Computed example of a mutant assay.
Amino acid sequence: MLDTIAKNGSKPRYRSNRLIFLAADHGALSRLNDVTRIALAWASIVDDVKEGKLNIDLLQKNQAEKELKSAEDVLPRAVRECYKWLLCPVQDAPTDPKSGIEAFALNTTGGGAGAEIERICTDNELVIATWSPIHLRAELKELYWKGGQNTANAAAFFEDTLRYLYMPRLKSREVLAKAIQTGAATKDFFGTAYGQADGKFEGFALGSGSVVFDDTLLLIEPEAARVYEESNRPKAQPASTGQAVIPGPSSGPSYPSPGDTLAGGVVEPGAKPLTPGVAKAKSFFGAAEIAPATAKMRLVQIADEIVSVLASDPNANIRLIVEISAEFPAGASDGVRRAVSENARSLGLKTADWE
Rank of each mutant, 00 (worst) to 15 (best):
A6W: 07
S10Q: 14
S10I: 08
R13Q: 08
L19C: 05
L22F: 04
D25L: 11
L29F: 14
L32S: 01
D34L: 07
T36A: 09
R37H: 06
A43M: 07
D48N: 14
E51Q: 15
K53D: 15
L54G: 10
L58V: 06
L58Y: 11
E67P: 02
S70H: 10
E72F: 08
L75S: 08
R77A: 14
V79Y: 13
R80P: 08
E81P: 02
P97T: 07
K98A: 13
I101V: 10
F104V: 03
F104A: 05
T109K: 13
T109A: 11
E118W: 02
L126D: 04
A138Q: 11
E139D: 08
L140R: 01
W145F: 06
W145M: 01
K146D: 01
T151A: 02
A156R: 08
T161H: 00
R169W: 01
S172Q: 05
K178H: 08
K178P: 00
A179V: 12
T182D: 04
G183N: 06
K187I: 00
T192G: 09
A193G: 09
G195F: 07
A197T: 11
G199E: 05
E202R: 14
G209L: 06
T216R: 13
Y228P: 10
P234V: 03
P234E: 10
K235N: 07
T241D: 14
A244G: 04
G248D: 10
G248A: 08
G248I: 01
G248S: 11
G252I: 04
P256S: 15
G259P: 07
V267K: 14
E268I: 00
G270K: 13
P276K: 14
S283V: 05
A287K: 11
A291S: 13
P292A: 03
K296I: 10
R298H: 06
D304P: 02
A311H: 05
D313W: 01
A326C: 11
F328C: 01
P329D: 01
P329M: 02
G331C: 02
G331H: 03
D334G: 06
G335L: 10
R337N: 04
V340A: 15
S341N: 01
W354H: 04
E355S: 14
E355Y: 11
